[in-house]
Design a protein around this nucleic acid. Structure first.
Lengths: 133, 133
DNA sequence: ATAATTCCTATTGAAAAGATAGGAATTACG
DNA sequence: CGTAATTCCTATCTTTTCAATAGGAATTAT
């Protein structure tokens, strides 16, 4: 699956953050979006690491976006949240495993497919997913 | 995953069939392509059902394509072999399960993504995957 | 009859995805 | 201070999906 639950959760968390002025606690955000809090935490770790959000620790801490929502594409977010957007193992994390890569007639197709998907998802930003708009 | 092992096996089986004049037994084809025979059988069932190949039963039986390879697109084959090419559960077999479908701002994006993927894979046919060419 | 095949159903095993648990580190605020 | 609320970290558990296997029935050329 290219866009799994994890990726969709990430998008919902980010749009929820985008909808708020100040930094928000994950507890609030997760509850509002009906996302399991602990699962949300593991997603946040990826998003912080990627630099899409910044965090404030301690009481009254929370998360906030580091860019305006119209500058965060779905492609960027999903690639981080899903760990890979590859349409097939042949172009994903297991890429190096195939001994036939050099002569495989399908491999160029999968690579081109990945590019097509990435380009498509680069057309949309968080702003496109915000309710009000 | 959009294109999993099952889909890639299907393509290899079909190109192997395309490379032969007469109908071929699955035992031969699977062995040639290093695909587990019993797993190949389950894939063939889908391909027969979809009408991409016809089978002859009994001794000296086997499978053969019902169309020339240049008329079988990857999109068609993969959709059948994978059961669905949907990039997300929201547009796949579980589509009906989401109560927020009516207002979900992401759903149109997933639908458009699926169309993009399908259109892309429709550009290629079995012929593009044949070694000799 | 026999052997080789497709066809069918069920089960098992392995891997990935989703979710949960417990607690350490940090920080605002009384 | 000390407490409460938060992010951060590691580990585990559960569920689902995917890949593969097993056993045999039905069919057909020779």
């Amino acid at each position: 699956m290219i866009v799994s639950t994890r990726g969709r959760y990430a998008l919902r968390i980010l749009t929820e953050l985008a909808a708020r002025e100040e930094s928000a606690s994950l507890r609030d955000v997760a509850q509002k979006q009906a996302i399991p809090f602990k699962y949300a935490e593991s997603i946040m770790r990826s998003l912080v690491k990627a630099g899409f959000v910044k965090s404030t620790r301690g009481k009254n801490g929370g998360y906030s976006l580091t860019r305006p929502p119209e500058e965060l594409t779905l492609a960027e977010v999903l690639r981080v949240a899903e760990d890979s957007l590859a349409a097939t193992d042949c172009t994903g994390r297991k890429e190096a495993e195939c001994p036939n890569a050099a002569t495989c007639p399908s491999l160029p197709v999968w690579r081109a497919l990945d590019e097509t998907v990435y380009a498509f998802l680069s057309q949309y930003t968080l702003l496109d997913l915000m309710p009000k708009a």
